[in-house]
Nucleic acid binder design. Structure first.
Length: 385
RNA sequence: GGGUCGGUGGCAGAGUGGUUAAAUGCACCUGACUGUAAAUCAGGCGACGUAAGUCUACGGCGGUUCAAAUCCGUCCCGGCCCA
């Protein structure tokens, strides 16, 4: 009998809480992973991330394969060693780069049913990624959780084109699973040592395509299933019905990974609809750009009082832009109730000065604050009765 | 004192008769960012007006011209060279 890797501890309506076991330790769900795409969370260091107690991070197959390259990573015994990071890691497969590089700019590569030719954003050189190769690289990285190579089309594509991407995603998922088994055998990995693997459900806004994709992936069998492509519409609003129904296509005992999600609001909503894992660049990227996430006074009270977060008003937080002129002579703290490095030590006026002077420590301070905000949010979701 | 080059929007700096409210960069203001080609990108940036538009502007004043930042005269200011 194989030990259960994901144990649901509590379930309320559709949202759930549980414990996920990985080779580098257990993780309570729901959780949010900061993106350390190239082996680092921009502007932060390991101690920052340990202090935040967020758990795992996300690294990227494509970016690490390009730089520093797999030869070097194999030499140091994997990406955890290279990063000096002993907590779990999840690697994304490079599938997203089909969307972010090629679908957005066809000059960046070519997609075929067999694999994908990428042009390196670093030096323009050509690289070929197949489902098999993406899996092999992720084994070489030595991560705890990996993702299949998938094809995430823009939501604006025709149903026919999205259907084609679904077909490709399913076929690639099969090849990934075969390669996954092959690698485990080849590397003689035990049940405890083997990484978890996630399928990714595509289908855009079309429920029948999502359903078909999910069914086929479940047949192949994965430890968890991701929501692929964008979960929001052109206006940035959550595609609630699609997200909700897709979760229902996934067996309850499997993990549900909302890739690239998202805003605090989207995370809360998707968790309430049955999703367990999240990752996004928003807290760090927007942090580097001067956008600060702040609890409203009311939400802060609820957070501290251990009330139900879902009962919060729709706007439980606000975002300020520290670059705005109105903060020029604002000598108050960003958030007087927050105990992060930024809020404890600096005024808004000083932080604005750091940004105005293009001093990178400004972006670092806000990234820290924003991740703390996300950490508090996730903790709150886990504490919900 | 003589010669010479020059004075353009917050700054730097193009433009040498009409296509110029004036390139470009910086600064400044605002916005975007969702499995990171992003310490990036987009828009705005003389005044008044929602707008069409109107007015005021290229050191000062005065000319030439249908038309001047651009040509002429003169004055003021600055750099360099000579005495």
């Amino acid at each position: 009998m194989i030990e259960q890797i994901f144990k649901i501890q509590a379930k309320k309506n559709q949202s759930r809480k549980g414990i996920l076991k990985t080779k580098r330790g257990a993780i309570q769900t729901p959780f949010f992973m900061p993106d350390a795409t190239r082996g680092f969370v921009r502007s932060l260091n390991n101690n920052d991330l340990i202090d935040l107690e967020m758990g795992p991070m996300v690294v990227n197959t494509f970016h690490l394969y390009l730089k520093p390259g797999m030869e070097l990573i194999k030499k140091v015994g994997g990406i955890n060693n290279f990063m000096d990071w002993n907590n779990p890691l999840l690697s994304d497969s490079g599938g997203y780069q089909i969307f972010s590089l090629i679908h957005k700019n066809p000059k960046m590569g070519k997609i075929t049913d067999y694999g994908v030719e990428f042009r390196s954003p670093i030096d323009g050189s050509l690289h070929y990624l197949t489902p098999e190769k993406a899996i092999e690289i992720q084994f070489d990285l030595g991560v705890d959780m990996m993702v299949v190579f998938d094809d995430p089309p823009p939501n604006g594509y025709t149903k026919e084109k999205i259907s084609q991407a679904v077909k490709r995603t399913i076929s690639w998922a099969k090849r990934c699973k075969i390669e996954y088994k092959k690698q485990i055998k080849k590397r003689k990995l035990s049940e405890i040592e083997k990484p978890l693997i996630f399928g990714v459900i595509q289908g855009g806004k079309y429920l029948d395509l999502r359903e078909h994709c999910a069914q086929e992936l479940v047949k192949i069998g994965f430890d968890g299933y991701g929501f692929g492509a964008r979960h929001i519409d052109e206006k940035g609003n959550l595609m609630e019905e699609v997200v909700k129904t897709t979760a229902e296509f996934i067996p309850p005992e499997s993990l549900r990974f909302a890739l690239g999600v998202g805003t605090p609001q989207d995370i809360v909503k998707m968790h309430s609809l049955g999703w367990d894992m999240f990752d996004c660049v928003i807290p760090t990227r927007e942090g580097r750009h001067g956008k600060i996430f702040l609890w409203t006074a009311e939400a802060r009270k609820i957070i501290q009082a251990k009330d139900e977060l879902v009962k919060l008003p729709k706007e439980f937080y606000q975002i300020i832009n520290i670059n705005n002129e109105k903060f020029k002579e604002d000598f108050t703290a960003v958030d007087s109730e927050c105990d992060c490095e930024l809020c404890k030590n600096h005024t808004k006026a000083y932080l604005r000065h750091l940004f105005s002077s293009k001093e990178p420590s400004g972006g670092r301070l806000v990234s820290l604050h924003n991740l703390k905000f996300y950490a508090e949010l996730m903790k709150k979701l886990r504490e919900e009765k």
